[in-house]
């Protein structure tokens, strides 16, 4: 059974420890702990020591909650009442209910609108615009604008939400005062989706801006110069020189902001999903179902469905990112 203890038979572990793909076991002489596969010379136990903290963290904060969600998703567990003391297994009932529940589809649709409007289009385009427009600007101007955009990003959510509520309030809100109408429009109630989309664009543009700034500084100046000498217009330069160079950054950026906007809870702080569920994006929907409605089991099932959508999104983006330009 000695072959079973070969380090090479542990491809995953070695790959983590050395950062390299494990060599095929068949090429290894039996009984020799191969220094060829363990270039750092850690040995198995020390390597294990290095990865253990990471694996424990992943286990505690990722694998365990996922399994827990899977489990409560098949029960009728509630926050209060008899079903909180002794939950019953209800099988796939919660999933059946979610997949036939119009409020679930409404929240998925609102989330789609939210993600497309605020992240994929809003933050992406505005972030790119800032990064592009600020390149020729004087350093002082550039730093000032960057600082302001960053400020929106780094302030705590609760503080920011409070400011926005005060700004959009019907009776004494800043916006209505500026428009000279008191009492004016109850923005968060009459236009809840627009409000949270605009809010999230304001809130999250900084990340895209910084990422695109870095990406744009990587565009070879020689190519830009060549384009200029060839008489290319701004549009042509963008399309044929800049975009091909930053394509992978754009994809990475879009993937990241899509995923975290999809799961973003901050809109809840502005509208609490209301009025009458009109801004109930999926994160708010899960919270309202689980904590306000007390339906922990049902919300567990929804969470798992949302997790699957997240994985699907990640896979799609990874697949797209892998395709190299011809």
């Amino acid at each position: 059974m000695g072959w079973a203890r070969l380090p090479a038979a542990e491809p995953a572990l070695d790959a983590v420890a050395t950062g390299a793909t494990a060599a095929p076991a068949a090429t290894m002489p039996a009984g020799r702990a191969g220094p060829a596969t363990d270039v750092v010379g850690l040995g198995r136990w020390r390597a294990l020591g290095f990865v253990t903290p990471g694996l424990v963290l992943i286990g505690v904060f990722l694998v365990f909650p996922a399994l827990w969600t899977l489990y409560i998703g098949v029960t009728d567990y509630r926050l209060t009442g008899t079903a909180a003391r002794a939950p019953q297994i209800v099988g796939l009932e919660n999933y059946r209910r979610a997949l036939t529940d119009p409020t679930f589809y409404r929240s998925m649709w609102l989330t789609l609108v939210f993600v497309l409007g605020s992240a994929v289009l809003g933050q992406n385009l505005l972030g790119f615009f800032f990064a592009y427009a600020l390149r020729p600007a004087r350093p002082a101007v550039r730093r000032l604008v960057e600082a302001l955009v960053l400020l929106a990003w780094i302030l705590p959510s609760s503080v920011v939400a409070f400011l926005w509520i005060a700004m959009l309030d019907r009776d004494g809100g800043t916006v209505n005062v500026l428009l000279g109408q008191v009492p004016g429009v109850a923005w968060l109630i009459e236009y809840p989706m627009v409000a949270i989309v605009v809010f999230n664009i304001w809130r999250g543009t900084a990340f895209s801006m910084m990422l695109y700034s870095a990406a744009l500084s990587g565009v070879p100046p020689s190519q830009l110069e060549t384009a200029r000498l060839a008489g290319a217009s701004t549009g042509q330069t963008l399309r044929d020189v800049i975009l091909p160079n930053i394509r992978r950054y754009a994809l990475t950026n879009t993937l990241l902001i899509t995923l975290w906007t999809f799961n973003d809870f901050t809109p809840f702080l502005l509208t609490a999903g209301g009025p009458n569920h009109r801004s109930e994006v999926v994160a708010a929907y899960i919270y309202n179902t689980a904590i306000v409605g007390g339906e922990m089991g049902y919300s567990g099932a929804i969470s798992l469905l949302v997790l699957l959508v997240n994985l699907l999104l990640a896979l799609v983006y990874l697949r797209v990112a892998r395709v190299r330009p011809a």
């Binding site: 365990f64 489990y71 409560i72 567990y77």
Partner: peptide, 11 residues
């Protein structure tokens, strides 16, 4: 893990 956690649900 799932079986152990299952026992934890409830009060």
């Amino acid at each position: 893990v799932a079986a152990t956690t299952a026992g934890c649900l409830g009060k």
